[in-house]
Nucleic acid binder design. Structure first.
Lengths: 222, 222
DNA sequence: GCGCCGACCAAACCTTGGTATGATGGCCTT
DNA sequence: AAGGCCATCATACCAAGGTTTGGTCGGCGC
């Protein structure tokens, strides 16, 4: 697979991305909803963070457009909580009464944009476009990583040890020595690893180990 | 000093990082200079961007602290120009009369921080600490990459082709077929590549190719 | 011309990788 | 007790990787 979610041969109709709007002002919600719908985007508009968290949030791609001043919980705190909740959807913050430190803090925390009201429609659309693109990339990367992690899960402890040392560049006999095994046993484990990980070559396996963050104490120049 | 590259156990003789201050107000320059010197940092303070660019800037680690409103060239434009000039030192911007869009634009462009005057000394020191840490990491990564690129430079065209295909996971005979060579010739090139790149194993070589961004059309699952 | 280097190839030889087939034993679940 | 999974090892065999020795050919600079 080369890029994007080409995991399956049949790239079924890509679900449309959804813009989640969180603002306690109904007028703003309506205005943003029609703005986003006018460019073909799906919209889910709610009045509070609680409402957003309570609503059904299927694993569809999308982004958040949130007012920083919300009843109960500020958008900035909200931003921080999202990470803890495992929600990594890109966030665009907007505010009617913001200041520079607030915007800087938001951007440092990873916000895609921070728009002061009133903003131009186009600025918001541009920000959403960037956010959706970022989300698409994040999801692709996450999907690929999860697939890899799932394969890794199927390995036994021994096989993982062998994987680590083999991808560190050690020869079978060295691995055997380190693990107190015979070389033939290492070969068997190694073969199992290649098969279970669907690696077609050692180079493949090395890249997989790299992506999984598997490192040994063994010195490597890279 | 805050922290520097803890990459090596004995970094020793680490050149002290320099904070470059660019502000047309002498009072600010003096105040910042003594602030930074009070925590053991070297400082180079100038009044304009031209002066900064004209001064001797050896390849020492450091960061920039720049006022966005400068005679002739704004700090924001300056930020953009830096990339074009190949200067990738982290930048901290400060302003007396900034607004939110300005700060957001600066942060999007990669500024470490954007401080509205007046700011607390500690905020500036914190920002500088982050900037210097970021610079240290960037320099480490850059140094490693340059060393790798230098090795790659010593390869002949053929050797590079062989490197690409071998690290893509192809067998010698496949590489030979693709390049119209005999297998024995591929082996020789391959051996030369391993020697010239100082790779102690194929796994090593794969990681090097990865770091160099060497990709072939060959399909890979990673 | 001469030396140097890169590219190319071959024969011989050795090491390493990889895959059977077959077998033993431990542990856990049914 | 039986079956399954894992780990272990041996023998044998084949494929692939890797080096050495030795040689041809063409371009480039002195």
């Amino acid at each position: 697979m080369i890029r994007s979610s080409a995991a399956k041969p049949a790239p079924e109709a890509a679900e449309p991305p959804t813009v989640h709007v969180v603002d306690d002002d109904p007028a703003i919600r309506d205005a943003l909803s029609s703005l986003f719908r006018s460019v073909g985007l799906a919209v889910q508009a709610v009045a509070s963070v609680a409402e957003f968290l309570g609503s059904p949030r299927p694993g569809t791609p999308g982004c958040l457009v949130v007012d920083v001043r919300l009843p109960g919980l500020s958008g900035l705190d909200f931003q921080g909580q999202m990470a803890g909740l495992g929600i990594r959807m890109p966030i665009i913050l907007m505010t009617g009464h913001g200041d520079i430190p607030m915007s800087v803090r938001a951007m440092k925390a990873g916000a895609v944009d921070f728009l002061a009201k009133p903003f131009r429609d186009q600025d918001m659309l541009d920000a959403v476009a960037v956010a959706l693109e970022r989300d698409a990339r994040r999801r692709d990367a996450e999907t690929a990583h999860e697939a890899l992690a799932a394969l890794y899960e199927t390995l036994t402890q021994r096989e993982r040890e062998v994987l680590a040392q083999v991808t560190a560049g050690l020869m079978n006999k060295q691995v055997a020595g380190n693990l107190g095994l015979s070389e033939i046993t290492v070969k068997i484990h190694r073969g199992n690893v290649m098969r279970k990980m669907s690696a077609r070559s050692l180079a493949d396996l090395v890249r997989m180990a790299e992506a999984l963050g598997i490192r040994t104490g063994g010195q490597t120049s890279v």
